[in-house]
């Protein structure tokens, strides 16, 4: 890790003016410090925003406004999250470990970098790390790479579980910068790569995420789930994952939400699938048709064709679980395919 200057921001303005080119914002540090240790990012200034007044969760219009510094663990325990946005809680609790969730912030979770192993290896060419250098993942080990929205410039996936659930709930990212406030929907916050590179940076120089807004989940509150396929029962990133929320009235779907994780450089909101589900009965057949639509255009970016099948199936599973209703208490193994089926 290179030497840097450490400053604790006392005001948002101070943070913004410091968060330029060679400066990095330090929240929980669980991603930033990790990447600094392995030499992937080398900021010369660190601006600590942990003391900024961004720690609150406010209720507004049936929804929530979540401060960027709200820790993942606290967000997952918030009563409104548990009662009205249970897929967010389940996604959070399936991510990382209890220790990491106590440190990780909402803003940091959204801004965390891909786990592409070539991105993490400063000796490998990587357009994301070093624009124009190429993409070492192509032709390499691609089991964790994208099947949707990728280009030859980058085939990485975004690793966040939280973002998948947030995207499904139409969350909005509130950003403050030198030019004032702007808002971006979660589902399009993370750029997809284009032919030449990884796309425009999600934040401009000096910009800071201040809040995440979750609009009222309406009639979907108790029909929402997150499911995550992993290589071990806990403490692993998703191979693929899905968040689903349904509003069901009189045996018919009024509205549906579906987002996939582990498949693209952003949480993949499956709008066509959602539309196709409207006014359908919540059956496995309907979910299977929707899942087909969700994976339309999917293509392996390497030796990862199986992911397309897995993503399709996890979409069905999430929808099926959502239709069955969110359990009053989240399962012992949140988002697991096992849930705690073998209580020993």
């Amino acid at each position: 890790m290179n030497l840097f200057e450490y400053t604790r921001a006392e005001t948002l303005d101070a943070a913004m003016s410091a968060a330029t080119e060679d400066g990095a914002i330090l929240a929980g540090g669980t991603n930033l410090l990790d990447l600094m240790k392995i030499g992937v990012v080398n900021p010369t200034r660190l601006i600590d925003i942990t003391r900024l007044p961004l720690h609150d969760i406010e209720e507004h219009d049936g929804g929530l406004r979540i401060g960027a510094m709200v820790r993942n663990a606290d967000l997952a325990r918030h009563p409104v999250i548990l009662s009205r946005f249970p897929a967010v809680a389940e996604a959070l609790l399936s991510g990382a470990s209890a220790q990491l969730r106590n440190a990780a912030s909402t803003g940091g979770n959204i801004m965390q970098q891909t786990r592409c192993s070539y991105f993490q290896d400063p000796l490998s060419p990587c357009n994301r790390r070093e624009p124009g250098s190429g993409c070492a993942a192509i032709g390499g080990e691609t089991r964790n790479h994208a099947v949707l929205g990728w280009t030859e410039a980058c085939i990485a996936t975004h690793p966040s579980d939280l973002c998948v659930a947030l995207a499904a709930y139409d969350a909005v990212v509130e950003i403050t910068g030198p030019d004032g406030l702007r808002e971006v929907p979660m589902e399009s916050f993370h750029p997809l790569p284009d032919a030449n590179g990884t796309g425009p940076a999600p934040l401009q120089s000096g910009e800071i995420i201040t809040h995440i807004r979750l609009p009222d989940s309406g009639g979907m509150a108790r029909n929402a789930r997150y499911v995550k396929l992993r290589e071990r029962t806990s403490f692993a990133f998703a191979i693929v994952s899905a968040a689903a929320a349904l509003e069901i009235q009189d045996g018919r779907i009024v509205q549906a939400r579906l987002a996939l994780g582990g498949v693209a450089a952003r949480p993949w909101r499956a709008r066509t699938a959602e539309k196709a589900l409207a006014d359908q009965s919540p059956t496995e057949e309907a979910f299977a048709r929707a899942a087909d639509l969700a994976l339309e255009g999917a293509a392996p970016s390497g030796d990862n064709r199986a992911k397309i099948t897995l993503a399709r199936r996890i979409a069905i599973r999430a929808l099926t679980r959502a239709a069955a209703g969110t359990p009053d208490r989240l399962p012992a193994l949140p988002a697991s395919v096992f849930e705690g089926d073998c209580n020993g």
């Binding site: 786990r115 192993s117 071990r232 029962t233 806990s234 692993a236 020993g344």
Partner: peptide, 19 residues
């Protein structure tokens, strides 16, 4: 070079793997 020379990519069992 390894693509998973750590404990996040090289998986060993965690507690929840042993019910």
């Amino acid at each position: 070079r390894f693509t998973n020379a750590d404990l996040a990519g090289y998986h060993i069992p965690v507690n929840a793997d042993v019910p």
